[in-house]
C-alpha cells in the first residue's frame, strides 16, 4: 500500500535528518502542515492561535525527532504533539468551561437522535466551491463539544484508526467509538436539514 511506501520513505528521511541533513525536515512535514493547522484551528477556533500553535507543534517535533520511535506512524506522533499543544493553549486561555461540563456528562448523555429524512439526495463535493456551504460546515464542527470535535477530527479528518484515536486521546476503544458515534450523529442532525435545502440542481447566478 502507498501508506507503507510513504512510511518507509519517512523512516529514511528521518534517519537522514538525524544524521545531519537538517533541511530535509521541511520536506518531511510538508504533507502534514495543513492537517495540523486544521486540527488546531478546529480546537482553538481562532486563526492566529491556530497558526502559532501549529508552529509550536512543528518546532516541538523538530526538537524531539530523535525520540520518535518507528513503531508509531510519524503522522500519529505529530498529531498527538499538536493535540497536546492545542489543549494546553485552550487551558491557558481558560476557554474550556462549557466543554468540560459536557465532558462530565459523557456517560449520562442521552442518545443522539439523527435528523430524520425520507430520502437523501447526495450533496456533491462541488458544492464546497460555495463559501456559504463551507461556512455552514465549519459552524457545525465549531458547535460540537470539544470531546466530540477532537475525535471527529482525528478519525474523519486525520483518518486515524479508532484504536489510534483512542490511544491519542488516552481513552478506551469503546469510549472512542461512543464519542465518535455521537460526534457524527450530532453533525448529521445539525447539517442534514440545512444541506437538504441546498438543492444541488438549482444554480444561483448572483452576478446576473
Amino acid at each position: 500500500m502507498t501508506d507503507t511506501l510513504a512510511e518507509n520513505g519517512e523512516a529514511r528521511i528521518i534517519a537522514a535528518i538525524l544524521a545531519g541533513q537538517k533541511d530535509l525536515f521541511h520536506d518531511l512535514i510538508r504533507p502534514y502542515e495543513r492537517h495540523v493547522y486544521v486540527m488546531t484551528f478546529a480546537i482553538l477556533k481562532n486563526e492566529a492561535d491556530a497558526e502559532e500553535v501549529t508552529q509550536e507543534a512543528f518546532l516541538k517535533a523538530w526538537r524531539a525527532l530523535a525520540s520518535f520511535r518507528a513503531e508509531a506512524r510519524f503522522s500519529t506522533w505529530l498529531v498527538s504533539i499538536a493535540l497536546n499543544e492545542a489543549r494546553g493553549r485552550l487551558r491557558r486561555k481558560n476557554q474550556a468551561p462549557t466543554d468540560s461540563i459536557d465532558e462530565t456528562h459523557e456517560d449520562g448523555t442521552p442518545h443522539v437522535s439523527p435528523a430524520l429524512l425520507r430520502d437523501w439526495r447526495e450533496i456533491p463535493s462541488e458544492m464546497l466551491e460555495r463559501a456559504e456551504v463551507r461556512s455552514l460546515l465549519r459552524a457545525a464542527i465549531d458547535n460540537l463539544p470539544l470531546i466530540y470535535r477532537e475525535i471527529f477530527l482525528l478519525r474523519d479528518l486525520e483518518e486515524l484508526s479508532v484504536n489510534e484515536c483512542a490511544a491519542t486521546l488516552g481513552i478506551s476503544v469503546s469510549a472512542a467509538k461512543v464519542r465518535l458515534h455521537r460526534a457524527r450523529l450530532l453533525l448529521q442532525k445539525d447539517l442534514a436539514p440545512q444541506l437538504k435545502h441546498l438543492n444541488p440542481k438549482r444554480r444561483w447566478f448572483p452576478w446576473s
Partner: peptide
C-alpha cells in the same frame, strides 16, 4: 436516508 446523509456529511466536512 440517515445513513446516506451521515456518510455524505462526513465526506463534505472532511
Amino acid at each position: 436516508a440517515v445513513l446516506d446523509s451521515t456518510r455524505n456529511i462526513l465526506i463534505l466536512t472532511a
